[in-house]
Amino acid sequence: MMLSVVLFFLFFSLFLYVLLAGADFGAGIIELFSSRNQQEKTKKTVYRVMGPIWEANHIWIIILIVILWVAFPVYYQIFVVYLHIPITLMLLGITMRGLAFIFRHYDAVKGKSQVWYNGMFKIASVVTPFFLGMIFGGLVGGNIQLFEEGTNQSFADIYIKGWLNPFSILVGLFYVTLCGFIAANFLIGEADENNELENYRKKASVATIVLVFFGFLILGYGYWKEVAFIQDFIHNPISIIAISLSALFLIPLWMMIKRKQKTWTRVLAGFQVFFVIAAAMTVHFPHIIITSTKEFSILEGVAPNSVITSLGVALLIGGAIILPGLFHLMRSFQLIKLFKK
């Protein structure tokens, strides 16, 4: 029973991290692909609307990782040992990005150094989600070779090939595009003037097309190379339903974008993310690590009951305090403005 509470919070934080941090990464990506004039505007708009929840957005990954290590230690162990390198690279991305964010908004002197901060911010905004995507690609791609006593595996076999391969790269690119997609749809509701709006609308359309393209590429590549995860994906009815729903929901999304409907574009873009995650997670649940020889269930070696119970209680209490607070924060700074307009 408490295990389901813990699992719920695990996926809930995953979803919110992918969505909220994704919107934040995506904002940097959109900046990267905008004209100079639009870059300044995007930066201002993003700071205005996302500033208040900026810190909160990035805590979801901490909650996620704490739940993993407390409740699913065996799973966590494989994750950190075999994907050490991309995790480190992602952390460097997070660090650089956080720093750039501070500099561009809090430097007392607004001078030439801003160019550097902006550059660092934009690059880190692409690199971080790219490695995040690669990490997920590595987890499910079936390329991780477990260490075996007595064989002559090289360093690269164990610690590099698992995540540095075409499949993971595709997943990385997919997530980068997804971030751009989320941010563009999110910003549509916030643009102050017409050419800013036009910019986001264009970005949203391009991102959608590229996203669908990468989606098919991943499926195609996986089918061709017989990646177990994709094979199962294709044969799993729930995944197929989820992904078809996400395709179907693109239609109302486009209609809402046309009508500049703020709330609905956001909700529908959120649906997209939800369906993509749901599709990916149900394929193999509970086997969320697929190595070249073996599949690991997240429930394998789950922590003892006493731990799960206390973690579940802590999460419920924490959630009861945090979620209303977060909601109130978002309402105070965002939706209220939305009603006013």
């Binding site: 206390s310 924490g318 945090i322």
Partner: peptide
């Protein structure tokens, strides 16, 4: 972490909650 993670998970998960409260308050 494989062994200690579950045992000392309690302070860490409460700490996560405290960070969250802090971040929300900071936003306000």
């Amino acid at each position: 972490m494989e062994h200690a993670g579950p045992i000392i998970g309690m302070p860490f998960s409460l700490e996560g909650a405290a960070f969250f409260v802090e971040a929300i308050a900071l936003g306000f």
